[in-house]
């Protein structure tokens, strides 16, 4: 049972630090843009944030891990382009990465 519920101080310090900086980032945009109207080029820039940031987050996993991951990413992206539902895409990604790893490893 101790294995299920064990906690310790270094863990608590890390969680506290991580939680504090994460919440700070979550509210900072709100504080920065409080009451400011955004349009034109600035709006285009802000609108691109989701795509740009999410792509950067997954780049090491899909472009710098191996051929199986990169090919699976292309497969998932194409399916998503044609509006395949999220759950289907997750299963497609998991399935193709397992299959391609197997095939490409020889």
């Amino acid at each position: 049972m101790s294995n299920l519920f064990a906690l310790n101080w270094p863990w608590a310090a890390a969680v506290l630090g991580m939680a504090a900086v994460t919440y700070a980032t979550r509210i900072s945009g709100l504080l920065l843009l409080n009451g400011v109207e955004v349009k034109g080029r600035w709006k285009a820039a802000l609108d691109a944030v989701p795509v740009s940031v999410m792509m950067a987050v997954i780049t090491p996993s899909i472009l710098m891990t191996g051929k199986a991951e990169s090919l699976s990413a292309i497969i998932v992206a194409i399916a998503a382009y044609f509006r395949a539902p999220l759950v289907l895409n997750i299963l497609l990604g998991m399935g193709s990465v397992v299959l391609l790893r197997h095939l490409l490893s020889g």
């Binding site: 890390a14 630090g17 900086v21 980032t25 920065l32 989701p50």
Partner: peptide, 26 residues
């Protein structure tokens, strides 16, 4: 545990939230 490095790395990974919350605030 590298508590400080973990905290700073979390900050960097989550800096995107600054952009995200700025965008959603509109």
């Amino acid at each position: 545990l590298p508590v400080l490095v973990l905290t700073l790395t979390t900050l960097v990974v989550n800096l995107r939230h600054v952009l995200m919350s700025a965008s959603i605030s509109r």
